[in-house]
Design a protein around this nucleic acid. Structure first.
Length: 323
DNA sequence: AAATTGTCCAACCGCACCGAT
DNA sequence: AATCGGTGCGGTTGGACAATT
């Protein structure tokens, strides 16, 4: 389409921000909210493009940012979520309060990815890099992972696909909900009014969802499949998750059946996360605890995650100065 | 002590998405 | 339906700093 640049680059400053610039940006947002990022620099007296201001704010100046070393718990969460979501940093960041997607991305690239590789685990697939490596070394800890069936891995991949879609919607809701509670939020953008209480919330996939009357979700979630692009309902995602985790998928998911889901995706849009806490805690819990059914695949899945986490936690490399 | 190499992370860039027109 | 502006996302870069030779 050939878009015009986000701002006139001529005369605009690039590179590291000075304390004075930070102060100007902070002061302006505290007083007015960011409003339109495009027009902010001029109003705030900054020689920066709006995009640069937004980045500086979201990754550095925002008051709700935690800086410093990642805790073991945070590392585990990142690894788990990355296994399911891949490089969906913003979705992952949703589950790590006060961490930015950029920070998580950097931490993954500089620490966790290397650590997994050193352990012989492919950081992309989260599986041992080669079967040969495993079969040739029965004492190798990665053997524990590879004992896991390919069926389970396939299930995991399906789960990831669905969970990914759900998380996207979830992340959006959480972001918007946060904006609501953020005193510096833009006054007219992205405002979302969540009900304070919900008399009939139900557990769905480890999360609390309100009834249809709760609110209209800002957008649907779209998945890409071989075939038509469809939207699927939250309830269907959860069903699928449960089915997959037991290895008992009851039906083949054809484009037609998925299209049916498109029919009721409105119901998905009407589902709402009841509050931030349940939204942020829900998924990880689901990941590790939706094995209540007790079927073999459940155990396999649980073992898979436990093994990854154990490996990371007990790896000598973990304490090595290399990392 | 100086030069080289490696690591980290803030910031940039380009693209995609979404809503408005 | 097409276009446009605003924003968000993920990949990449480059400079500062640390470690090593």
């Amino acid at each position: 389409m050939g878009r015009s640049p986000c701002c006139d680059k001529v005369g605009l400053k690039k590179g590291p921000w000075t304390p004075e610039e930070d102060q100007k940006l902070l002061a302006y947002i505290e007083q007015h909210g960011h409003g339109s990022w495009r027009s902010l620099p001029l109003k705030a007296g900054l020689q920066r493009c709006g995009k640069s201001c937004r980045l500086r704010w979201t990754n550095y100046l925002r008051p709700d940012i935690k800086r410093g070393k990642f805790s073991l718990q945070e590392e585990q969460t990142i690894i788990q979520l990355h296994a399911l979501l891949g490089n969906r940093w913003s979705a992952i960041a949703t589950h790590l309060p006060k961490r930015t997607d950029n920070e998580i991305k950097n931490y993954w690239n500089t620490h966790l990815k290397k650590r997994l590789m050193k352990m012989g685990i492919d950081p992309v697939t989260h599986k041992p890099k080669s079967d040969a490596l495993v079969s040739n070394n029965s004492s190798c800890s990665s053997n524990l992972i590879d004992g896991h069936s390919s069926k389970s891995a396939a299930n995991l991949s399906h789960m990831a696909q669905w969970e990914s879609a759900r998380l996207e919607a979830e992340a959006r809701l959480v972001r918007e909900s946060r904006l609501r509670s953020n005193p510096f939020q833009t006054p007219h953008h992205q405002q979302l009014l969540l009900p304070e209480t919900n008399p009939n919330h139900e557990m769905t996939g480890g999360l609390l969802f309100g009834g249809p009357a709760d609110l209209e979700s800002p957008s649907s979630t779209t998945l890409s499949f071989p075939g038509p692009v469809v939207s699927v309902s939250e309830s269907r995602c959860s069903e699928y998750l449960l089915e997959s985790s037991c290895g008992e998928v009851k039906e083949t998911w054809t484009p037609e059946s998925l299209r049916e889901d498109h029919e009721d995706h409105h119901a998905f849009n009407n589902n709402v996360i009841h509050n931030n806490n349940s939204a942020e805690a829900g998924f990880t819990e689901l990941l590790l605890s939706n094995t209540a059914g007790g079927c073999q695949e459940d155990e396999d899945n649980k073992n898979y995650w436990n093994t990854i986490l154990d490996l990371v936690n007990t790896s000598p490399a973990h304490d090595s100065p290399i990392f």
